[in-house]
Amino acid sequence: MHGGPKGPQKAAPGTTRRIFGYIFQYKWRVVAIVLCILVGAAAQAGSALFLQSLVDSYILPLVGAKNPDWGPLMRALTLMACLYVAGIFCSWLWQWLIVAVEQGTLKKIRDDMFAHQQTLPIRYFDTNEHGDIMSRYTNDTDT
């Protein structure tokens, strides 16, 4: 039998720590991402829970009322709209920040790889195919 394609290879020891070292160069952005995720999740959960009380506490008492007071309902709807806006904004912000962190991290890794490549002996380039070297810079780094 011929050896089939290999399964996923294990990362070298220390790889995860090095990757997080690159990522945490953006520590304030990472903190902002985590906070935005938490605020967005809380706003989404709060608005879902608030929807039931909106119907029970604000809309049903107005049904059949001769002179309904719309003030409490309008305040509740405004609060709910604010929750939705906060959730949407936080969702947008963390996605925007994570793209910046991801692209910055990849650029720093590639810059470091290029600087390291400049120190390699010519023998390395003679014994490795050009396509394999370029693949490490593109596909392997992205993966």
Rank of each mutant, 00 (worst) to 15 (best):
T16P: 01
I37L: 12
V31L: 14
S53A: 08
Q9S: 11
E102V: 03
H2F: 11
L120F: 14
C36Y: 00
I19V: 10
G14K: 05
R17L: 08
Q118S: 08
V63F: 13
A11S: 11
A48D: 10
L35W: 06
E129M: 02
L38A: 13
M74C: 03
P5G: 11
G7N: 11
L38H: 00
M1S: 11
I59A: 09
N128T: 05
A81K: 15
M134L: 12
T127V: 09
T138H: 10
K27P: 03
R75C: 03
Y26R: 04
L120M: 13
D112G: 03
L62G: 05
F89A: 05
A76P: 02
P61S: 09
D111W: 08
F89Y: 04
I19E: 10
L120Q: 14
A115D: 12
A43T: 11
L60W: 06
M113A: 10
V101Q: 12
H2G: 04
A81D: 11
I33Q: 07
G64A: 06
F125K: 04
N67M: 06
Q103R: 10
D140I: 03
G71P: 02
Q52A: 08
L54P: 03
L73K: 04
A86D: 00
T78N: 12
L83A: 10
L97Y: 01
A115W: 05
G131C: 04
F50P: 01
A11G: 07
A45P: 03
V63E: 15
M74R: 08
A115T: 07
S47I: 05
K27E: 06
N128S: 07
V55H: 14
C36F: 00
I98T: 07
A41E: 12
G7M: 09
L35D: 00
E129N: 04
Q25V: 04
S53D: 12
F50C: 01
L54V: 03
C82G: 13
A11K: 13
M113C: 06
W28G: 00
Y58K: 08
V85T: 11
L79C: 06
A42P: 01
L83M: 11
V30E: 04
G3V: 06
S57Q: 14
M74F: 15
V55C: 04
T105F: 08
P68I: 01
S91A: 07
N139S: 09
H2E: 12
R29K: 09
G14Y: 09
L73A: 06
G104R: 11
G64Y: 03
S53T: 07
G71Y: 12
K6W: 11
A11I: 02
F114I: 02
P8H: 13
L54F: 15
V31Q: 02
D112S: 05
N128E: 15
F125H: 10
N67P: 00
R136K: 13
I133D: 10
F20E: 03
A86R: 00
V39I: 14
K107V: 02
V101P: 13
Q103M: 07
L62H: 09
A45S: 04
D142M: 06
M134S: 06
Q9F: 13
A100E: 14
G21S: 10
T127W: 13
K66F: 14
P72W: 04
L35S: 07
I122K: 10
